[in-house]
Amino acid sequence: MSLVLTTASVPEGEKLSYWRDALGRALVPMAVTARADAPFRGRVATGRLGGLRVSTVEADAQRASRTAAHIAHARADYVAVGVQTSGTATLVQDGRRALVEEGDLVVYDTTRPYSLDYPGRFSTRVVHMPRRAVGLPEEELRRVAGTTIPGRDGFGALLVSFLTTLPVSVPPGSPVVATRLAASVVDLFATLVHERGAPAAAPEPSPQHHLVQRVRGHIDEHLTDPALSPQSVAAAHHISVRYLHRLFEEEGVTVGRLIQRRRLEECARELGRQNAPVPTVSAVAQRWGFTNPAHFSRVFRAAYGLSPREWRGSRDALLLAG
Rank of each mutant, 00 (worst) to 15 (best):
T7W: 02
A8E: 15
A8L: 09
E14C: 06
S17R: 15
R20I: 11
L23C: 12
G24D: 07
V32Q: 07
T33D: 15
A36D: 15
A36F: 11
G42F: 02
L49A: 03
G51V: 10
T56H: 15
D60E: 12
R63L: 14
A64L: 08
A72N: 08
A74H: 03
A80Q: 12
L91T: 08
V100H: 04
E102L: 10
T110F: 12
D117N: 09
D117A: 14
M129N: 05
L141F: 05
V144E: 08
I149Q: 01
P150Q: 12
R152Q: 13
D153N: 05
A157C: 02
S161E: 14
L166F: 05
P171Y: 03
L188G: 03
T191D: 12
E204S: 12
R216V: 10
L223T: 07
S229F: 12
P230G: 07
A236L: 11
E249G: 06
E250N: 07
E251L: 04
T254P: 00
L264R: 06
C267R: 00
A268H: 00
E270H: 06
Q274H: 09
A283Q: 13
N292M: 06
A294I: 10
R301E: 12
R301S: 11
L306K: 14
S307K: 10
P308S: 10
W311D: 03
D316K: 07
L320V: 06
